[in-house]
Structure formats: structure tokens, C-alpha cells
């Protein structure tokens, strides 16, 4: 089992600073969706992690805690994720991406 980053949609959608998308060393791993969080009544969208690309370095956690001061990202074991975004389920749009959430990779 290994750790991956998990973004709390409720905190992220309230702030929507997008800093983590700019500091992740992996390409197309932390993505941004305009839709995410709208169903919970938030004005902005949220960032999310494509867990199959996340190498678990936790740089986004430091950036979220210390630069953005939002504390929205936690590292959790991949089998503890209720559901996850996978690269195959990501749909690119004009201004943001959307994702169909799937059961996370286990093992």
C-alpha cells in the first residue's frame, strides 16, 4: 500500500487558489475542475488528484499548508480512498477538466 494526495473538496472549493496545480512536479496529476463542489453550493471549482500518476511526494501538502494556508490536502493510503480520479476517466474541456470518479487502484 502507498500514500497518495487527497484534496478536501469543501475546503478547496471555498478558496480555489490553484497553487497545488502549479507546484506538483508531475504533469497532469493535480487537475482543476470547475464543476466539482458546485453540487455542494460552492461558487468555485476544486482541484483533484489523478491518483494513478501521484508519486506521493507530498509537495502539494506543504504548498497547501504553508503557502496557501488552506490545509486542504492530506496524504492517505490508496485503499482508504472512497473513490478516486484516474487518468482514463478525465475529460478535458475548454477551461477546466471533469472527471468520472472510480474505485481507487488497490495494491
Amino acid at each position: 500500500m502507498y500514500l497518495v494526495a487527497d484534496i478536501n473538496v469543501e475546503i478547496c472549493a471555498a478558496k480555489s487558489c490553484k497553487l497545488c496545480t502549479q507546484y506538483c512536479p508531475e504533469a497532469n496529476t493535480i487537475l482543476y475542475s470547475d464543476e466539482m463542489g458546485k453540487d455542494k453550493g460552492f461558487k468555485y471549482g476544486s482541484a483533484y488528484v489523478a491518483v494513478d500518476r501521484c508519486k506521493g511526494c507530498a509537495q502539494c501538502v506543504w504548498v497547501c499548508d504553508n503557502m496557501a494556508k488552506n490545509n486542504a490536502i492530506k496524504m492517505i493510503m490508496i485503499d482508504q480512498l472512497p473513490n478516486a480520479a484516474l487518468t482514463d476517466n478525465i475529460i478535458y474541456g475548454e477551461k477546466s477538466t471533469t472527471v468520472a470518479l472510480a474505485a481507487p487502484v488497490v495494491g
Partner: peptide
Amino acid sequence: VSQMGSFKEVMEEHPMCAGC
């Protein structure tokens, strides 16, 4: 850079160390 996370990047997955 401010649009990062919303478009497909030219760079793909790579074998460099985590957090590099």
C-alpha cells in the same frame, strides 16, 4: 502557468524521483 490543471500538458509521465 495560471491555466495549469485545465489543459493537457506536453510533458508526460517520467521516471524522475518523487518530489524532484
